[in-house]
């Protein structure tokens, strides 16, 4: 399973490195969202600095939808999905590999967005350990839930419109937990972020487990 996961993750990341859709489209989109928030909330009144954690995670959430859609779009062309199905790879491994590739891309995206909120919103990064831990747990959770819903919607003609409707309510706790943990970290009270970090970890574990169980049947049907 782990070897298959590494193979699939390597393949997805290689495809991304060559096609550069994530760097050329998803990343600029995330930065654009940060700029649009500044238009929506007047920067001169200090809202942006206060709201930085929430805005950061909303930008991550929207980008995660795009990353998941991209992750299954590369399987749609040239009957790659049939190839994947016939490859004899463990479905659980395929799930973990695809989720790992999405998580890796989200990790890069979060690093860039962090620089973005520091520069654009004037956020001060404190409690770096909590911020990093939050990013890790939230990213794994987002990637796991996203990949599970991604394969669910992959074969549907209406996947572009349906995936956000299915995925975003499910990852709402991630948005809430990650925002609260970041608020605690940025405010210099890392202890307040601990329960949220645990919630994020529970979410990640639950959706990793469900994804491992459900991916096989879903891939067969897609």
């Amino acid at each position: 399973m782990w070897r298959d996961a590494a193979l699939v993750a390597g393949k997805d990341i290689r495809v991304e490195l060559r096609s550069r859709v994530a760097t050329n489209q998803v990343l600029p989109f995330a930065l654009l969202v940060l700029i649009l928030f500044a238009f929506a909330l007047d920067p001169d009144r200090g809202f942006l600095g206060q709201a930085a954690p929430g805005l950061f995670w909303v930008a991550v959430l929207f980008s995660a939808v795009l990353a998941v859609q991209r992750s299954f779009a590369i399987e749609a062309s040239d009957h790659a999905r049939e190839g994947l199905r016939l490859s004899g790879l463990d479905p659980a491994g395929i799930f973990l590999g695809k989720a790992a590739a999405v998580a890796a891309q989200l990790g890069v995206l979060e690093a860039v967005l962090t620089a973005g909120v520091v520069v654009l919103y004037g956020a001060h990064l404190e409690g770096a350990l909590l911020l990093l831990g939050t990013c890790l747990a939230a990213t794994v959770g987002l990637a796991a839930a996203g990949t599970a819903y991604g394969v669910l919607a992959a074969s549907l003609r209406v996947r572009e419109t349906l995936l956000p409707l299915l995925l975003l309510p499910v990852v709402a706790p991630v948005l809430l937990g990650a925002t609260k943990a970041w608020e605690a970290g940025l405010a210099g009270h890392p202890a307040q972020g601990d329960p949220w970090l645990r919630l994020l970890a529970v979410f990640a574990v639950v959706y990793l487990a469900l994804g491992v169980l459900a991916f096989g049947p879903l891939l067969e049907e897609s």
Binding site: K180, P195, V202, Y207, L210
Partner: peptide, 27 residues
């Protein structure tokens, strides 16, 4: 099959989201 998996994925979220929202408003 797809709907059944979706229902399970959604239902697993119910306690987590309730807990998160509960903490959000009470912590």
């Amino acid at each position: 099959k797809r709907s059944a998996v979706a229902a399970i994925l959604a239902f697993a979220d119910v306690p987590i989201s309730y807990l998160s929202v509960y903490w959000w408003k009470t912590l």
